[in-house]
Amino acid sequence: KDKDLLKGLDQEQANEVIAVLQMHNIEANKIDSGKLGYSITVAEPDFTAAVYWIK
Rank of each mutant, 00 (worst) to 15 (best):
I26D: 00
N25D: 08
M23K: 10
K1G: 10
S39Y: 09
G8N: 08
A43W: 06
A50M: 03
S39D: 08
N29M: 11
A19R: 15
V17I: 14
E27T: 13
E12C: 15
G34A: 04
D4Q: 15
I31N: 06
L5E: 02
K7W: 14
V20P: 00
D4E: 15
K55M: 14
K1N: 10
I18P: 00
I31K: 08
V42H: 01
L6S: 03
D32Y: 14
E27F: 14
D2A: 13
L21M: 03
L9D: 02
E12F: 11
K7N: 11
K7Q: 11
F47Y: 12
K55Y: 12
A43T: 06
K7C: 15
S39W: 10
K3C: 14
N29G: 05
P45L: 13
E27P: 13
D10E: 05
P45W: 14
K55W: 13
G37P: 01
E12R: 12
I54E: 01
A19F: 12
S39I: 13
I18N: 00
D32N: 11
P45F: 13
A14N: 01
D2S: 13
V51M: 14
E44F: 09
G8H: 08
A19I: 08
A14V: 04
A50Q: 02
A19K: 13
K1M: 10
Y52I: 06
Q11M: 13
N15C: 11
K1A: 10
L21P: 00
V42S: 01
A28G: 06
G37S: 05
M23G: 07
S39Q: 06
P45R: 15
G34S: 03
V51N: 08
L6P: 02
K1W: 09
A14R: 03
T48D: 14
L5K: 01
K55A: 12
H24I: 05
V51A: 10
T41W: 12
Q13A: 11
I26A: 00
E12A: 11
W53Q: 00
Y38G: 00
I31V: 11
V42N: 01
L21W: 02
A49I: 08
I31C: 06
A28I: 04
L9E: 02
K3P: 05
L5H: 01
I40F: 02
N29T: 12
D2M: 15
Y38P: 00
V20L: 15
I54Q: 02
K35N: 11
H24D: 01
L5M: 04
D46T: 04
G8S: 04
V42T: 02
T48F: 13
A50D: 01
G8C: 13
S33N: 15
V51K: 09
H24R: 05
Y38N: 01
H24Q: 05
M23I: 08
S33Y: 15
E27R: 15
A19V: 06
S33L: 15
S33E: 15
Q11H: 11
L5Y: 03
E16P: 01
W53C: 06
A50C: 05
K3I: 13
Y38R: 00
Q13K: 10
I31L: 06
E16F: 15
I40S: 00
F47N: 01
K7Y: 12
G37Y: 06
K7M: 11
M23P: 01
D46L: 08
Q22W: 12
A50P: 00
V20F: 15
I26N: 00
E27W: 13
N29E: 06
N29H: 13
D2I: 14
P45V: 14
G34Y: 05
T48Q: 13
T41R: 11
N25M: 07
D4N: 12
S39G: 06
Q22N: 09
M23A: 12
L21I: 01
D32S: 09
G34M: 03
W53I: 11
V20I: 14
E12T: 10
A43K: 13
N25C: 12
T48A: 14
A19T: 07
E12L: 10
P45E: 15
Q13D: 05
T48I: 12
V51Y: 11
D32R: 09
L36I: 06
V51R: 08
V17E: 00
N29Q: 12
I54W: 09
D10G: 08
L21K: 00
A43C: 07
D32E: 07
N29K: 14
D2F: 15
I31Q: 05
K7G: 10
S33P: 02
K3H: 06
S33I: 09
I26K: 01
F47S: 01
A19H: 09
S33H: 15
N25A: 07
K55N: 13
A19C: 12
G8P: 01
F47V: 04
D2Y: 15
K3V: 13
K1H: 10
S33D: 14
D10Q: 06
F47I: 04
A14F: 03
T48G: 10
D46P: 01
K3L: 11
S33W: 15
K7L: 10
E27G: 09
N29S: 10
V20Q: 07
G34D: 04
L5Q: 02
K35C: 12
K30P: 03
V51C: 14
V42D: 01
Q22C: 11
Y52L: 06
Q13L: 07
S39R: 13
I26G: 02
H24C: 10
L36T: 09
A50N: 00
L9C: 12
T41M: 09
V20G: 03
A14G: 02
D32A: 09
A14C: 06
G8Y: 10
A50E: 01
I54F: 05
G8K: 03
F47E: 02
G8L: 05
Y52K: 07
K1V: 09
K35D: 11
A49C: 15
E16Q: 14
I54G: 01
F47L: 05
A14Q: 01
N29W: 13
A28P: 03
L21E: 00
Y52H: 08
A28Q: 01
A14D: 01
E12W: 12
Q22A: 14
D4F: 15
D2P: 13
N15V: 06
D2T: 14
E16C: 15
L6M: 10
Y52G: 05
G34C: 06
W53E: 00
F47T: 02
N25V: 03
K7P: 02
L9R: 02
A43R: 11
M23C: 11
F47C: 06
K1Q: 11
D10H: 06
Y52N: 06
V17C: 09
L36Y: 13
I54Y: 05
E27A: 14
S39H: 06
G37D: 03
I26M: 02
M23Q: 09
V17R: 01
L5S: 02
A14I: 04
E12N: 11
M23V: 07
I31G: 02
L5D: 02
K1L: 10
N25E: 05
H24V: 05
D10W: 04
K30S: 08
E16G: 09
D2R: 15
G37L: 08
I26C: 04
G8A: 05
G34R: 03
D32T: 06
F47P: 00
I31W: 09
G34K: 04
I18F: 08
V42G: 02
Q22H: 10
D4S: 13
D10Y: 05
P45M: 14
A43E: 05
L9Q: 01
G34Q: 04
K30V: 14
T48Y: 13
K7D: 07
G8R: 04
D10F: 05
E12V: 09
D2W: 15
N25G: 15
F47H: 05
I40A: 01
K7F: 12
W53V: 09
K1C: 13
K55P: 05
D4R: 13
E44G: 09
K55L: 14
I31A: 04
L5N: 01
P45A: 15
D32K: 10
W53R: 01
L6V: 10
A28T: 03
A49M: 12
T48N: 13
E12H: 11
D32W: 14
N29A: 09
I26P: 00
A43H: 08
